[in-house]
Design a binder for these strands. Structure first.
Lengths: 134, 134
DNA sequence: ATTGACTTTTGCCATTTGGCTAGTTATAAT
DNA sequence: ATTATAACTAGCCAAATGGCAAAAGTCAAT
């Protein structure tokens, strides 16, 4: 039978599980909480997170909201949907110099603006420390 | 195990297979032609069309284009995707909570992705500390 | 150290999916 | 009518999904 890397884009093989786990612990949720929220089982979700099992569309759909994902996002990451045709393509304005990692963007966006600013404040402090000890 | 009518919207039960067949014959294509075009098997497609089997997301994705469907359409019809919120249109933002402050976004975007991720990693640590000392 | 309460992982198994290979049923053409 | 030929269907089986229950880890508090 066709394994998932079959002909799908397979972002997952290189990290869908990890992404899901990151998101879950970042929220934070335990496996059973997520399982309960999504109407699935913790054991399966655990295996999904460490990439022992590949989640079906049904499972992805169920865990999307509790994790704060857009269904589309997960489907695309899983290779079930081809990369958003044109819309969504490059998320936000895509700011200046580099680009902002979508995952990072999403996580941060859930914080209050004060927290967001505090975060980059801390970052700049760390950078100045790093610089002075160089 | 959860059968597909589980908690999915299940348009299919009342006709996804039929719809696919209608579309296929309308084109017109034979089962084997469609199978070849989509890299699947005729027998399976046949069963899908007469609703003996329910197509996985992988199969839906493969047959979408040959049938002239948008992937989204089929996924929605199959109940894999919830009815298009308003038209995929709203696309981007997505983030549940709030919005990403433009200034924050701009500053962070200048950093490497590793740094970006490290930053939110630190944030999550701080949050868990805050939570535990609450 | 040990108990106790959680969280995650493993073992096991029922259910499904989907492909291959034969059958069966149309559709023509002689 | 009788073969051909093409389309569909059915039998079978390997692989994978996902849930339940029990076994490991974790970690705080005693």
């Amino acid at each position: 039978m066709a394994s998932y890397n079959d002909d799908m884009v397979n972002v997952q093989r290189t990290g869908l599980g990890e992404l899901i786990r990151q998101q879950r612990v970042a929220i934070p949720l335990t496996l059973q909480e997520l399982a309960r929220l999504s109407g699935t089982s913790p054991s399966h979700l655990g295996r999904v997170e460490r990439s022992e099992r590949f989640p079906s569309a049904r499972i992805l759909r169920k865990i999307a909201k509790p994790l704060g994902f857009e269904e589309n996002e997960l489907f695309t990451l899983a290779g079930y949907l081809s990369p958003q045709p044109s819309a969504t393509s490059e998320a936000q304005p895509s700011y200046g110099g580099g680009q902002l990692d979508p995952y990072v963007s999403r996580v941060l966006a859930q914080e209050s603006v004060e927290t967001q600013r505090a975060v980059i404040g801390i970052l700049s402090i760390l950078k100045s420390i790093a610089k002075s000890t160089a």
